[in-house]
Amino acid sequence: MARTDEQWQRTAMYVRHAYNKLSVRDLPLCLPGEPQECGQSAQQHVLLWAADLKAAAHHLIEESAPSHDEAAYHAGPLYKDKLNLLRESSARQSA
């Protein structure tokens, strides 16, 4: 996806904020000098925080489900269905 550095930085902040809402680790929305100071791009920060967010959401599913089967369904088939809908929506918007 083509985005400016500013757009990537804003997205990284949003993803980190969402992660903060789900996680027991409370992180600031932006660290001083980030992302330049750590040497990684804003796009790389989006990817890193999105991975943390995905893990936090998966953990929330596991903790919230009344059974292992319910957790497996929500983290598996239902997740894949939702992901496919997002991909289709993105493809339509790109066309």
Results as ranks from 00 to 15, higher is better:
M1D: 12
K54E: 14
A57V: 00
S23N: 06
K54R: 07
Q40M: 12
Q7G: 04
A2L: 09
Q40K: 09
E88H: 02
E88G: 07
D69W: 15
R87T: 12
K21S: 11
Q93L: 06
Y79P: 05
V15L: 03
M13S: 03
S23C: 03
A95C: 11
A71D: 11
H17I: 02
L48C: 11
G33L: 04
T11I: 05
Y14V: 08
E70I: 09
L86I: 10
E63K: 08
M1H: 13
A71K: 01
A51F: 01
H17Y: 14
A42S: 13
A12M: 07
I61G: 11
M1A: 11
P66W: 10
E88A: 12
A50P: 06
M13Q: 12
W8L: 00
G33T: 04
A12Y: 07
Q36R: 14
P28R: 00
C38H: 11
H68I: 05
E63T: 12
L47Q: 08
H59P: 02
E70C: 06
Y73Q: 05
K80N: 15
G76R: 01
H58Y: 09
L27G: 09
N20F: 03
E62T: 10
A12L: 01
E88V: 03
A56I: 06
Q9G: 06
L86N: 10
Y73F: 15
Q93P: 01
L60G: 05
H58T: 01
C30M: 07
W49M: 01
A12S: 10
G33A: 08
M13G: 04
E62S: 03
T11A: 13
V46A: 13
M1Y: 05
R10F: 14
T4N: 08
R16C: 12
Y79R: 08
A71L: 06
M1N: 08
R87E: 14
L29G: 01
V24L: 03
L78Q: 05
Y73D: 06
R25H: 15
A91K: 07
L47W: 02
A72P: 04
D52T: 06
P32H: 06
E34D: 13
A95K: 07
E6T: 02
